[in-house]
């Protein structure tokens, strides 16, 4: 829980930087890199597919957080 929230704080910071640099929230290449990175480092016994599914949710929620933060800033 602590680590997830720490990650979320960094996501918010990243979002601010992305907005300043006018980079889109959705970066497919970066997301793919994360999945490759995670699956390569996976020691098991969780299957790599399971790792992808878990990280999909983490990234989906991160993107949602970035969107909400950006919307609040714009209002």
């Amino acid at each position: 829980m602590y680590l997830l929230n720490q990650r979320a704080e960094q996501v918010i910071e990243m979002g601010k930087v992305k907005q300043k640099m006018e980079i889109k929230v959705f970066d497919p290449k970066r997301e793919r890199d994360i999945f490759v990175n995670m699956t390569e480092k996976n020691p098991g016994p969780l299957h790599v597919d399971a790792i992808v599914r878990i990280f999909e949710r983490i990234i989906d929620e991160s993107r949602r957080l970035e969107r909400i933060e950006a919307n609040e800033k714009n209002e």
């Binding site: 929230v25 497919p28 793919r32 599914r53 989906d60 993107r63 969107r67």
Partner: peptide
Amino acid sequence: TAKQIQKVTEKLLDKGFDLHRSTGS
């Protein structure tokens, strides 16, 4: 393909939706 999925993702995000992806086998 990953590219097709990416296109749909972009279109949905552009419209302001949130996604819950689930990659099955």
